[in-house]
Amino acid sequence: MGQMSNDAIQLRSVSRRYGAGGGAVTALDQVSLAFPRGTFTAVMGPSGSGKSTLLQCAAGLDRPTSGSVTVGDTELTKLSETKLTLLRRDRIGFVFQAFNLLPSLTAEQNVALPLRLAGRRPRKTEVREVLAQVGLGDRAGHRPTEMSGGQQQRVALARALITRPDVLFGDEPTGALDSQTSREVLTLLRGMVDSEGQTVIMVTHDPVAASYADRVVFLVDGRVNGELIGASAEDIAARMTKLEAAPC
């Protein structure tokens, strides 16, 4: 058995095209990227640059037209639909802008759902533990309507973390939150990376959110257009302004 890669996810020459013939659209064009374990990466770019497609291909929600995606030492492109579903369930966590909680279930029941779907009987202690981890240990019995937007997003985060995923993906996870609540959720994500070695990959349009990441990868027209390491919100905003102003 070879040594396990230090990368949680690797994309090699990944392209994703939709449609055929003259109407075909290339959402990703020969993208090669590595996401090291225990790091926080933000993905940014102008509208239509391929950010969400990148996230979906990296998380195994969409298959690339060409190229390969590897999670740990497993190449996704070679997996059957069934094996891909199992891998996503066991090793990938996903948080969206819309919290996607079931309104009739309590916080505790929402968090336990991925385990139930996997045919596992959730232990009350593990569910309470992950709720405490996101600062909601005292809200286990509350339903989504009894919680603020920030609390609902933290329940969604706990639900994504209950399976102890290798990688946590966020698609604009703070997009629906006010700036104070957004900061709380980002601080939580940052803490998980620093204290627990969680790998986080987040698409965002917000330079302040991106400044919480170790590095920011920029996409333009489906291609990687450089990155910034440990950058301030101001530097990230300046880079984005430049990209958006660039002639097509």
Rank of each mutant, 00 (worst) to 15 (best):
L102K: 00
L55R: 14
A98V: 08
Q109P: 02
G67V: 09
S49D: 06
Y18M: 05
T26P: 04
R143L: 05
A118R: 11
L33W: 12
G38S: 11
T125G: 05
M44G: 07
V14A: 06
L113G: 01
N110C: 10
A34Q: 11
G93M: 09
L84C: 12
L136V: 10
K78R: 15
R143V: 01
R89F: 05
F40K: 02
A112F: 06
T70F: 01
M44R: 07
T125N: 11
R120Q: 12
G50K: 08
R120I: 04
P36Y: 01
V14D: 08
P36D: 05
L79W: 11
F96K: 12
T145N: 14
G119L: 07
S80A: 14
R91F: 04
G72H: 05
S66E: 15
A42Y: 10
R91S: 14
T82N: 13
K124S: 14
R16T: 14
T77S: 13
L33F: 02
T65W: 07
R12H: 15
G22E: 14
V31Y: 05
T125A: 15
V14K: 08
V111R: 01
S68M: 05
R128N: 12
E129V: 02
T41F: 06
L136Q: 05
E75K: 02
V130R: 10
E129T: 04
Q109K: 07
T77D: 09
A112L: 01
V134Y: 10
L55T: 04
P64G: 02
G21Q: 03
N100W: 07
V95R: 07
L113A: 02
F99L: 06
T74R: 10
G93V: 10
V14H: 09
P144R: 08
R116G: 00
E126D: 15
P144V: 01
M44Y: 02
A20N: 06
A59N: 12
L113W: 01
L79G: 01
A112M: 03
A59S: 15
T53N: 09
Q97R: 01
D90N: 15
E81W: 01
T39F: 09
I92N: 02
G135V: 00
R128K: 11
L33I: 15
L86E: 15
F40M: 01
